[in-house]
Design a protein around this nucleic acid. Sequence first.
DNA 1: TTAAACTGGTTGCTTAGTGCAAGCGGTTTG
DNA 2: CAAACCGCTTGCACTAAGCAACCAGTTTAA
Lengths: 170, 170
Amino acid sequence: MPDDHRSGCPINLTMEALGDRWSLIVIRDLMFGNRRSFRDLLTQSEEGIASNILSARLKRLLSLGLLSKQDDPRHRQKTIYSLTEPAIQLVPVLAAIGAWGRRHLEVSEALAIRAQLLEEGGPILWDAFMDDLRAMHVEDPVGGATGTRRSGVLDDLTEAFLKLAGGDRG
Amino acid sequence: MPDDHRSGCPINLTMEALGDRWSLIVIRDLMFGNRRSFRDLLTQSEEGIASNILSARLKRLLSLGLLSKQDDPRHRQKTIYSLTEPAIQLVPVLAAIGAWGRRHLEVSEALAIRAQLLEEGGPILWDAFMDDLRAMHVEDPVGGATGTRRSGVLDDLTEAFLKLAGGDRG
DNA sequence: TTAAACTGGTTGCTTAGTGCAAGCGGTTTG
DNA sequence: CAAACCGCTTGCACTAAGCAACCAGTTTAA
């Protein structure tokens, strides 16, 4: 039988895959917040995702091939979640969404600075960021999760955010 | 009281506004299919939206300020739905989503051609398209709905689609 | 003149997704 | 050896989605 999709339209298929209130939030936290474990994603979530929803989303994103999981060598019970190449290629999508939201919705200044820098940086910055993400999520997911591997772009974005937030997050 | 949002993050606020399976589909049909009435959106929908869902989405998008409605001079009962400026500015978002879906999901050839042309055209084409949409949805919504006002970009996209689909749609 | 078709929806029902709180077996830390 | 932490699961309430039938008013065509 054919696939059980509503249509073969690229926009529709993307909405079928990611068109809910949480999937892109989880990917955003992995991508920009480098939250790589269930507990990090759960407790550091700005929006307060519930554990059963997070569990369901991680399963779904794994089965879609957007995430991969590895054992954490530091803790036998711990899992490292990483972005795969398809998820990394969502950078331009998240940049466009962030730019639109920043213009048309009531965003907070601190949380909007990353969207602004990402928009201003354009495709050149996105490509640099995607290369960093490949190093931290595909080539060396453990190093990326533990801090051995870092991203210059991500450090810049985080620094700009912390300057406005005055704070204690990353 | 503060707004009842999960957070002030641009990506989160966009997902709260448009993060469901249908909102962007409705906007896509208005934008690329020039479906401007309830009936058109309902019956010409590739994905088969239900009438109660369509009704709810139109109400929601109107209240968010992404759509406007006008009386149709040809039919006292008919309503013309139009994109507002914020919705028109979703063009880059839909282009990015379409480009991603085309690369990573099982799209159909005919339905993917628009995404491809939009991606290849880049920001210059998007700007031209957005100007056309302003003429058809903001300046002269009635003319845009009735065919008096047309979009060169949209005609090109539709022609390319019809060539592959062999068909009877627009 | 009247019936058929079309207009933008609504209603009722079932199923799927979201949100919250509590809990669970195993692991590591102090 | 107890407390904290690990990735989850369970249960229950509520909202959103999906389906089919229906509705009153308007236009069209015989």
